[in-house]
Design a protein around this nucleic acid. Structure first.
Lengths: 235, 235
DNA sequence: CGGGTTATTGAGGGGCGTCAACAACCGTGG
DNA sequence: CCACGGTTGTTGACGCCCCTCAATAACCCG
C-alpha cells in the first residue's frame, strides 16, 4: 500500500467518469489535494456501513462492489475499473451503502469530501458528470435486477463471465487472462452457487465457447456467448 | 384526465422528496410554472425509451415503475406514491429508462425541464434533495437485487406484499384495502409466476397472516410477515 | 512436500415453473 | 335482469432445474 502521488496531468485513464470535461484549472486544483493509494489483491477498500470522508477514483486495477445480502450472504453488484468513482453515495447518516474490495492490485486516488464538494459547487459540468455517473449506476443496477429475476442459471453465468471479461483490459485479443475471482465470487455475481458455476463453465468449455481452467479464462466464441446472455446494451 | 392546477401552497403532500426544504420564494416560482394532470387506473404515464421534456411529481394515487426485461417479460421495480418524483433520470440520449403506469387514479404535477433545471441551478438545497432522492432509489434497487437473487419465492412474495401495503395510505389500521394489482403484477414485482403468487397468498391466508380474496387484502400479522421477509430497512 | 483452500463432478431431492382444468369475477348487451 | 364471453384467480399434477451434500482432485503457498 504505497502512497506515491500520481499527477492528474499524466493520468493514463482515458475514460474517466467525472473529469472528462474538466478544464485545466480544475485538474490543477484537484492535483494538489488528492492522495494516491495502492491496494493489494483481496484487500478491502470501503466497508459497507462505515463512514468515509472522501471519494475514491480507480486509477488502475479492478475492484468488486458488494453488499451483505439476505441472511448475510454476499452479493457482488458489479466490478469497477479505471475511471470509475466510488464512495460518492453515502446515505443519510453518512454511511457507505456498499463495500469495495480490490480484486487485482488496485491504484486509487482519494479526494476529501471538502475538496470534492467545493469542486461540485463551482462547476456545472462536474455536477453534470457526477449525475450522469450516478444515472449510469442506476441503469446498471436495473439490468442486474432483470438478470437476477428473469434469467436461468446458464444465462446468468454467461452474463457474469461477459461482465468480468469486459472489466479486464485487452479482453478481446484472444489471449487467456487470469482472473483473481473464485468460483464463489462468480456465483455471488451471477446469483447462484459455486457448484453451478463450475458445472456451467465446464459445459461452456465442452461447447467451445470458452477455454477455462481454474482461474485462467479465454473467450473463444464471443458472439455465441452474447446470444446466451441475450443482453443487449449494458451490464 | 383533467388539468386543474393545484397550488403548491395548499399541497397536501407532507413527505415530498425534493421540496422539503424549499423556501417560499421557491414554491412561488414553481407554482406558476407547473401543470397538473390526473391519470386513470392503468393509464400509462411514462414510456420506457421515450423522450420527456420535464419531470413528474406524484400528488395523489399510486403508480408502478416497470421495465421491459429479459425476452420482453415485464419487471416491476417499485410502486411510487405521493411525494415521489419521476422522469428525472433520462439517459445520455435523453430517453426515459423506465415506464410509469398509474395503478390507482393518480394525480401528477408536471414541471418542464427548463424550469426544473433553472431551479436546480439556483438552489444548493434543491440539488441536495434531488441527489438524496436518487441515492434513495439506488439503495432501493440494491435491496431489490438482493431480494431477487437470494430469497425464495415465499420470502419474495411476503416482501412484495409488504411493499404494496406500504404504498397504500392507512395500511396499518386493520382494514382491508382494495389493490388494483393483478396476481401477475404481484408476480412481476416479486420475480416469480402468477400461480406461485396465488398459492402463496392462499398459504398466508391459512396461516392467518393475511386475509386475501381477489384484490382485497388485509394484513393480520404484520410482525410475522416481516419475519418471513426478514428485511430490515428499506424496500 | 504437506496441509489448507479451491475446483470438479456426481447423486439426490425439493422448490418452483409450466400446463391444464375449473371457478370466480366483471363489464357488456340483449 | 340474466345471459354470456373474456379476463382473472385458484388449485392440482407433473417434471425439470438447480440447490445441497459429499467425495475426490487440483491447486497454492509456505
Amino acid at each position: 500500500m504505497n502512497n506515491e502521488i500520481k499527477s492528474c496531468f499524466i493520468c493514463n485513464v482515458t475514460e474517466c467518469s467525472i473529469f472528462k470535461k474538466s478544464n485545466l484549472e480544475f485538474l490543477k486544483l484537484i492535483d494538489g489535494k488528492k492522495t494516491c493509494i495502492t491496494y493489494n489483491k483481496n484487500q478491502p477498500i470501503i466497508f459497507e456501513g462505515s463512514r468515509l470522508d472522501g471519494v475514491y477514483m480507480i486509477n488502475s486495477g479492478i475492484a468488486k462492489v458488494h453488499v451483505k445480502g439476505y441472511k448475510g450472504r454476499p452479493l457482488i453488484l458489479r466490478l469497477i475499473k479505471p475511471g470509475d468513482i466510488s464512495g460518492h453515495l453515502p446515505d443519510g447518516q453518512n454511511r457507505q451503502p456498499v463495500s469495495v474490495t480490490a480484486v487485482e492490485e488496485t491504484g486509487m486516488c482519494f479526494i476529501e469530501n471538502k475538496e470534492f464538494d467545493a469542486m461540485l459547487e463551482n462547476s456545472v459540468s462536474a455536477r453534470q458528470e457526477l449525475m450522469d455517473a450516478v444515472k449510469q449506476e442506476l441503469k446498471q443496477l436495473e439490468m442486474r435486477a432483470i438478470q437476477l429475476a428473469q434469467m436461468n442459471v446458464r444465462e446468468k453465468i454467461a452474463s457474469a463471465i461477459l461482465h468480468i471479461l469486459k472489466s479486464y483490459p485487452n479482453n478481446n485479443n484472444g489471449k487467456a487472462i487470469h482472473i483473481n475471482l473464485s468460483r464463489q465470487d462468480i456465483a455471488d455475481l451471477a446469483g447462484t452457487t459455486k457448484e453451478q458455476v463450475s458445472k456451467t463453465i465446464s459445459d461452456f468449455g465442452k461447447e467451445n465457447l470458452i477455454e477455462a481452467k481454474g482461474r485462467s479464462l479465454k473467450l473463444i466464441d464471443y458472439k455465441k456467448m452474447e446470444t446466451i446472455a441475450d443482453f443487449y446494451k449494458g451490464f
